[in-house]
């Protein structure tokens, strides 16, 4: 955990003076609730506060800026359509938003596997696990716990999980990288996920 991760989260600012990055979970939830009522001003605020995060995630998977832009566009149109389905009791608002964009990005990548020019650079990114302090919208404790759990996996499996999640690597790509049969990769990934789940619940 980074030394300054105990910085209190910014809460209860009024929307007018909140900088986008500082919007709290509660504020994002409120904005989604307003978007569900077709509030375009709230939609613009939500976009401003969250699009850089979503674009970062999507761009890391797709690598191509214009492709990522298209996915972001579709993701926010989906957010507009599905805002009423958001349930703050089931999902954190940022996770819900990121998942819509990430899901779309991976759908795209599976549809057009050749659209991404290279997977080599993703290898370089895999260890770029700098705990962030800039993102105050997430629960740092959860992050830390997840990273602790991933760190308990064998090194190769840590990398596999992160390459898959962060860079969108498929089973086949991982199998090639680690010179294993695809089915072995499936088994390893599932064991890793099972271990993560068990560790998070412990």
């Amino acid at each position: 955990m980074p030394p300054d991760s105990s910085t209190p989260k910014v809460e209860a600012r009024s929307p007018s003076d909140a900088t986008p990055e500082a919007l709290s979970v509660a504020n994002i939830s409120t904005l989604i609730g307003r978007v569900a009522k077709q509030d375009r001003a709230a939609f613009a605020k939500l976009y401003k506060a969250t699009a850089p995060k979503l674009l970062g995630v999507v761009l890391r998977i797709l690598k191509e800026r214009s492709w990522a832009d298209d996915v972001i566009q579709e993701a926010y149109l989906k957010v507009w359509q599905r805002a009423s389905l958001f349930d703050a009791g089931k999902a954190s608002p940022i996770t819900w938003l990121v998942s819509i964009a990430r899901n779309k990005a991976i759908d795209e990548l599976r549809k057009h596997p050749a659209g991404r020019t290279s997977t080599d650079d993703a290898m370089d990114e895999r260890v770029a696990r700098q705990p962030t302090t800039q993102d105050q919208m997430e629960d740092q404790q959860e992050v830390s716990k997840l990273n602790q759990c991933i760190d308990q996996l064998a090194k190769e499996r840590q990398d596999m999980v992160r390459l898959a999640y962060l860079s969108g690597w498929s089973r086949e790509e991982l199998a090639r990288q680690y010179q294993q049969p695809v089915n072995t990769m499936k088994t390893w990934l599932r064991r890793a996920l099972q271990d993560i789940k068990g560790c998070l619940e412990s």
Partner: peptide, 26 residues
Amino acid sequence: WEERLAGMADDVAPVQPGPELFAEIE
């Protein structure tokens, strides 16, 4: 599962979208 794994995305640096992107969405 999205909640369980979401923390990994925290490591990703935000990227500022171009101004035209939201205009296109609108």
